[in-house]
């Protein structure tokens, strides 16, 4: 009887665990326990003092091995396997220098060093958190010349606050996008996000077999249907077929053609120029 109760409890616990895991977002790419930032900070100081001479301050290795690629580090959780090596030292691998024993480091200090190393592994493993830092290499003057000349940007865009007619102002655009996102938008200003999207919306005119026409903002164009939003704000769907004509106007058509023509230098010069338009 007690055995059965225990089993039951076991099942309940396992189920509870499964539910808890299901709700936990899978944000940390590298498998392992969640990190404690305070322990990471303490561990980094200890690592720099004691370990960085051989393993480099970022733990990617110097005369000693790269610890981000160390199976001992990767299999460790809270210092239990790292600690064995730190306390005992190691003979050098492949004729390399041997590692002395660091016997004075306490268990809790080793736990902190382990936490720092695991934070380095997590940072290497999650590419979506990598900072993009070197994007600004262009020449703003060359960018301005391209904008007003060979790039033909000034045909549709102005940099002044007021845009006459169908012109689109880019004034202040550098304040609305980070440099990497602005660079993307220079290459192709995909609709969906940002303040200038309404002007980038595709419009469509559908001509029905009767000759009647309906126009609006293109919501969706598939192989079998086209969906538009009319002037009153209603979405309307038309089934494509004989006698139904669809004419799409894409204000980004020029950008679609241009993307294959930019050199990397032209894109970066344009970025440098637009970054002056805060």
């Amino acid at each position: 009887m007690p055995k059965r109760v225990l089993l039951c409890l076991g099942v309940v616990l396992v189920l509870a665990g499964a539910v808890a895991m299901a709700q936990q977002p899978d944000t940390q790419y590298h498998p392992g326990p969640k990190l404690d930032p305070a322990a990471v900070a303490r561990g980094q100081k200890l690592f720099i003092t004691n370990c960085s001479f051989c393993h480099a301050a970022d733990a990617t290795g110097a005369s000693g091995p790269d610890l981000l690629r160390s199976p001992i580090v990767l299999r460790d959780q809270h210092g239990e396997t790292i600690g064995v090596v730190v306390h005992a030292g190691r003979p050098g691998a492949g004729g390399g220098p041997s590692m002395p024993a660091f016997s004075s480091l306490t268990e809790s200090q080793i736990g902190d060093i382990a936490e720092f190393l695991h934070s380095r592994v997590v940072a290497a493993a999650d590419r979506f958190d990598y900072p993009i830092t070197g994007v600004m290499t262009g020449n703003a003057a060359a960018g301005a010349a391209y904008f007003n000349g060979a790039g033909k940007c000034s045909t549709c865009h102005t940099v002044s606050d007021t845009a006459p007619g169908t012109m689109i102002s880019l004034a202040g655009i550098a304040g609305r996008f980070t440099p990497p996102n602005l660079l993307k938008r220079i290459a192709y200003p995909a609709p969906a996000r940002g303040a200038i999207d309404e002007t980038a919306a595709e419009t469509v005119k559908v001509t029905l077999p009767s000759g009647a026409t309906v126009s609006g903002v293109l919501i969706h164009q598939g192989e079998f249907h086209v969906v538009l939003r009319d002037a009153d704000g209603w979405q309307r769907t038309f089934t494509l077929g004989p006698g139904v004509q669809v004419a799409v106007h894409d204000p980004l058509a020029f950008h679609k053609q241009q993307i294959g023509k930019y050199s990397d230098a032209e894109l970066h010069n344009l970025l440098a120029y637009l970054e002056t338009l805060k």
């Binding site: 970022d58 990617t60 790269d66 990497p180 993307k184 192709y188 993307i259």
Partner: peptide, 14 residues
């Protein structure tokens, strides 16, 4: 030193 992905691609859309 590059580790793991060491970079990424940012699709421009369209």
């Amino acid at each position: 030193k590059g580790e793991g992905y060491a970079g990424r691609g940012e699709p421009v859309g369209g």
